[in-house]
């Protein structure tokens, strides 16, 4: 009951935040010094043709009017039309978003499944060589620029060693599986197309790893620090004193306490990862919303950019809502609040 109320309250708050996000993206798109109508009409267009395009897209109206129309469209889940692709932005997003989510989910899965145990073990074996290696990773993982790491990995694993493909999501010769979720890996798995799955996995390794690296570093660092603190807590001493096995004490009784701040970090990293897809998708030519946003922005086509921003924003907010609910499950003290 309390949980339901929390969800409703958070959803209402989400609406307010969305309003702010719409206002900001709309303003930023419209103060940019460019003429999308002229770009859309093409280099040889006459003034009259440009004006026609301007009218067609509603760009000749006053800004408040344009905002009002945009919001009204949004409420009907219409995000405007892309000048670049000529499609409805909503349709484009539906096409590109699954690829991005696939990449983000893969990298988050990897950074959590690897980062939590690595941080835990570094804390248990504090000041061992493993711990030192983890601290080095924690610094370098955050410090390495994603595009640089991406180029380096492409060079080593794709060009020199030839183990993995350089870019893309599948080879041109391979037909993607019939979409269920739109995520190629998941769809191939659901349809039992193992060859396609294996190939898609090879394509996904490098971009997912590059995207995961900073989150992995952050999760290792937070979980290590939290574990060190929790392992020194009185209730851990008490569990030991009562004869509970070390594995149980560390891997469950202590970890669950240490996971609280780690979980908050995972939520933040999720949003950050979504944003970083812009760079990673560009370098790896991954057909997701990041690449879509970059191509649109270069063409001064702002409706898609706004659409991508909104989609990323909503996903981030929903993810953090989930994280907060998980927090309540992990920490009984926050439930009544």
């Amino acid at each position: 009951m309390a949980t339901l109320r929390t969800i409703l309250r958070r959803l209402a708050l989400l609406g307010v935040m969305l309003g702010g996000l719409v206002l900001i993206t709309f303003t930023v798109s419209n103060v940019a010094p460019s003429d999308p109508a002229a770009l859309a009409a093409g280099p040889d267009a006459t003034r009259a043709m440009i004006e026609t395009v301007r009218h067609e897209y509603g760009l000749d109206q006053s800004l408040p009017m344009q905002l009002a129309r945009y919001v009204a469209d949004l409420l009907r889940l219409r995000l405007g039309r892309s000048i670049q692709t000529g499609n409805q932005v909503a349709d484009d997003l539906a096409r590109f978003f699954p690829a991005t989510m696939e990449l983000v989910l893969l990298s988050m899965l990897f950074s959590v499944l690897a980062g939590v145990p690595m941080g835990l073990w570094a804390a248990v074996r504090r000041n061992s060589w493993f711990d030192h290696a983890m601290r080095a990773l924690a610094v370098s993982g955050v410090a390495l620029p994603a595009f640089w790491a991406a180029l380096l990995l492409q060079l080593v694993f794709a060009v020199w060693l030839g183990w993995l493909p350089t870019s893309g999501q599948l080879s041109v010769a391979t037909a993607p599986p019939d979409p269920i979720t739109g995520m190629i890996l998941l769809d191939a798995l659901l349809r039992g197309q193992w060859a396609v799955f294996a190939e898609a996995a090879r394509y996904a390794v490098l971009p997912a790893f590059v995207l995961a690296l900073p989150s992995l570093a952050a999760i290792v660092r937070v979980n290590r620090a939290e574990m060190i603190e929790v392992l020194a807590a009185d209730y851990v001493t008490a569990a030991r004193a009562h004869g509970v096995a070390p594995r149980r004490v560390i891997g469950w009784l202590a970890l669950r306490n240490a996971m609280l701040p780690t979980l908050a970090m995972i939520g933040l990293r999720f949003g950050w990862t979504l944003g970083s897809t812009v760079l990673v998708e560009t370098v790896f030519d991954w057909p997701g919303i990041g690449l879509y946003a970059v191509n649109s922005a270069i063409a001064s086509d702002f409706k898609p950019v706004m659409g991508v921003t909104l989609a990323v924003g909503v996903t981030f907010m929903l993810t953090n809502l989930l994280i907060d609910l998980a927090y309540g499950w992990l920490d009984p003290r926050t439930r009544s609040a």
């Binding site: 009185d234 209730y235 851990v236 008490a238 009784l253 669950r256 306490n257 609280l260 920490d331 009984p332």
Partner: peptide, 9 residues
């Protein structure tokens, strides 16, 4: 206060 684990029943 501190010798019981806060997140378990």
């Amino acid at each position: 206060q501190t010798y019981l684990n806060p997140v378990f029943t």
